[in-house]
């Protein structure tokens, strides 16, 4: 193990390491801690200049209550949910199929198609912006959740296919051959042999895509406007102009907007990290 395990070091080193650890964490999360602190302060604290000290009273419920009951925030959160979930399902389904095709079969152009998916995934969004916005308007889907979902599915398919294909490549191929010898139809091999083995990959991708899509801001601004379809990342701008300079409410709003992916991460940590670090180890 590198660096040298701390247990093999002198006792003093161990103690200072354990003391330094929480300190480093606080330093690392300082901007976030400040915002969390803001979000439970009463308005009076900002008037009196008590910005960083302990809140003079804990107003957690009233601050977060106002976020939920006096603004469009719940709508934006629901929009985000209704955009994110179909995208996750769509992108995972499309890429599971594409990954199966690219991972199992040998045919001309296999590697080319695979590399096309990877390359497309790296492209800067801006080169897609004008045509995709046009297309969405032409399809009468501007400022709708469907418009956003369709684009997100298409774009995420690139990354997901890379992921799925590499995962399927690592599965034991003799299993598929055995099924073929038995005369099992190809689509049944996909459904009954490969798909059950792909559960960890499906879970990892679902969590990752959930986070990516929930946090998307650029496309939300390009393809939607107003509380009818906008997700929370874009809606928070409107929220912040509603509560201009009311830092306690703006902080509470931001925390609410950031929370679902954070919760997802802490609940599904293993899958999340497995997905993110795919390929980091040979």
């Amino acid at each position: 193990m590198f660096p040298t395990p701390i247990e093999k070091r002198p006792r003093s080193a161990q103690l200072s390491y354990q003391a330094f650890l929480p300190l480093a964490l606080i330093l690392w999360l300082l901007p976030l801690i400040a915002v969390a602190n803001f979000s439970i302060k009463p308005e009076a604290d900002f008037v009196n200049g008590n910005y960083w000290g302990m809140p003079s009273s804990f107003e957690m419920f009233s601050n977060y209550g106002r976020v939920f009951f006096e603004s469009n925030m719940p709508r934006y959160l629901l929009n985000s949910l209704f955009i994110t979930v179909p995208t996750v399902i769509g992108a995972v389904a499309l890429s599971a199929m594409a990954g199966f095709a690219l991972g199992v079969y040998r045919f001309k152009g296999n590697l080319f198609i695979f590399f096309m998916f990877i390359a497309g995934n790296f492209v800067p969004f801006q080169i897609l912006m004008v045509p995709v916005r046009d297309l969405t308007i032409d399809l009468n889907l501007y400022d709708t959740k469907t418009g956003l979902i369709l684009f997100h599915i298409a774009f995420q398919t690139g990354f997901c296919t890379l992921f799925m294909r590499n995962f399927i490549r690592a599965l034991p191929f003799p299993l598929i051959e055995a099924a073929r010898v038995e005369g099992v139809a190809e689509w049944r091999i996909f459904w009954y042999v490969v798909l059950p083995l792909m559960k960890p990959a499906l879970a990892a991708l679902a969590v990752l895509i959930f986070t990516f899509i929930w946090n998307d801001y650029f496309w939300a601004v390009v393809l939607t406007q107003g509380p009818g379809a906008q997700p929370v990342t874009a809606g928070i701008t409107e929220f912040n102009s509603q509560f201009r300079a009311a830092y306690h409410l703006m902080s509470a709003g931001s925390i609410v907007a950031a929370l679902p992916p954070v919760a997802m991460f802490f609940l599904m940590q293993k899958h999340f990290i497995a997905g993110l670090t795919l390929g980091a180890v040979k």
Partner: peptide, 15 residues
């Protein structure tokens, strides 16, 4: 890393 960039931006602009 899991927090959206929008919120990271807001957090830092207040910071």
């Amino acid at each position: 890393f899991v927090i959206s960039q929008v919120v990271v931006g807001l957090v830092f602009s207040w910071f």
